[in-house]
Design a binder for these strands. Structure first.
Lengths: 248, 248
DNA sequence: CGGTATTTTGAGCAGTGTCAAAGACGGTGG
DNA sequence: CCACCGTCTTTGACACTGCTCAAAATACCG
């Protein structure tokens, strides 16, 4: 039972199937993918900026993030990945990664050779489409981040991010609307929303003081979900929607 | 000859082929896609936030952009599209658009029914993969924008955007490194880089004063490309790379 | 229990935004 | 061809958000 659930390929199938309904043939093909499982520590690099990408990682446990270092030395996090999400479907079409991918917590990954994924997609169009759809969902989130960072002030920006995490965790089947474990330091959150750690901290305090959340290291308690949602200008419509069936 | 070149489906084939090499069968299938051509004025909406998406647009002439309105009324532009680029491969997997798509200039589009694209991709895996790869390239640009807006100051941010446009235009076969027509008002550019029009204007002036560029309405002359590149912390590696062949 | 990483607070400052008005440009109608 | 008008750009003065630097307080870990 546990092996069933924790089988990485099963997780991948479920995930893709939520994007676009797969046939039994598709599923069977995915189940044949070669992979190896590894466990890595918090902070470990899966891919470094400028490195060759050989594998596509599937995050079976733990959290990860993608980041980019700019000229001045600043770091910007451009995606956060939650347990069960496939990584690096992104870099699959390029030889060299343009940013880093690291674990936010200790985590377990299934590494699938890039070539195997490409061959699978080439052989099964629905799988290619599901991966395309998965990337489409990710793009949608990244666009929202552009809007969030570009056009919302610090307080709203932080509130928005907290809402997004809650919503995505719920999507992943983890109850989070009342609060959740957020395995990020304030430094990391600051690099996600384009603020200074110091200023981020002040915004957290403001959110706490207004009774919307309560926070301890790594934990966010949401005391007033509607309020946080409203303040954060959060509308979940940019997130994943139910899969569409493809009638061929 | 002209019909050859301006045939929207030929443009689409070329574009996808740059992402991932297509076979003759794939090309033939694309050539059979139904489409209708329309010409629209500057500012016209292709899709509005919240609207149903029925077609996938291919921009044969002109420029377009995608934008999102946030709660406070601000607008953030999340993508700029150049002539020859396919639009809305993005929204193809969702019933309702989460942002608007508008023309930046008068432009011509080929509208291809969403269903036809989906059926095509389902029937030809390489085409699905090419579209996926195309979206991957777009995601890469949007990520860079997150880093640009989140972690670079106003001056660098603007310089970076100007470099990106030059590079993308060159990619599209338009000589631009010495200067180009940039069909955007300063208001629009400001909404792209997350600045106020007033402040954007000052940054433009600064770039002019330091001899890097010269600008007149809608035209950017690049006087010192290496200098602009350096100031703008611009490295083109996040942009489109040559297509990879798929050996199946 | 000590050492290190993280969070919190303070004070002062810089960068960017706001508001307002003047200039320039480009299109239109007479 | 000119005058007018609306849009876009430019400039100024000032306010405020968010950043910097520095230090203290707190949590975590061996």
């Amino acid at each position: 039972m546990i092996t069933e659930i924790s089988n990485p390929l099963r997780i991948l199938i479920d995930r893709l199937n939520r994007r676009l309904v797969l046939t039994e043939t598709d599923r069977a093909a995915i189940r044949l993918l070669p992979f190896k499982t590894i466990t890595m520590e918090r902070g470990a690099y899966l891919v470094k900026e400028g490195e060759q990408v050989k594998n596509c990682g599937l995050l079976t446990e733990g959290f990860a993030f993608r980041s980019k270092i700019v000229g001045g030395g600043g770091r910007q996090i451009t995606s956060i990945y939650m347990p069960g999400e496939p990584l690096d479907l992104h870099n699959i079409f390029r030889q060299v990664s343009t940013h880093s991918l690291q674990l936010l917590t200790r985590g377990t990954l299934a590494l699938i050779p890039r070539e195997a994924i490409l061959a699978l997609a080439a052989a099964h169009s629905r799988i290619a489409m599901a991966m395309w759809a998965d990337m489409s969902a990710e793009l949608s989130v990244v666009r929202e981040w552009v809007a969030n960072i570009g056009r919302r002030n610090a307080l709203i920006r932080v509130a928005h991010l907290l809402c997004e995490f809650a919503a995505r965790l719920e999507d992943a089947g983890i109850r989070a609307q009342a609060g959740y474990l957020l395995p990020m330091t304030q430094d990391e959150i600051a690099d996600t929303v384009g603020l200074t750690p110091v200023h981020l901290n002040r915004m957290f305090k403001k959110l706490s003081d207004s009774g919307l959340i309560r926070q301890r290291r790594g934990t966010i308690l949401i005391l007033d979900w509607p309020g946080l949602r409203k303040l954060g200008d959060f509308h979940s419509d940019y997130l994943l929607k139910p899969a569409i069936p493809v009638t061929q």
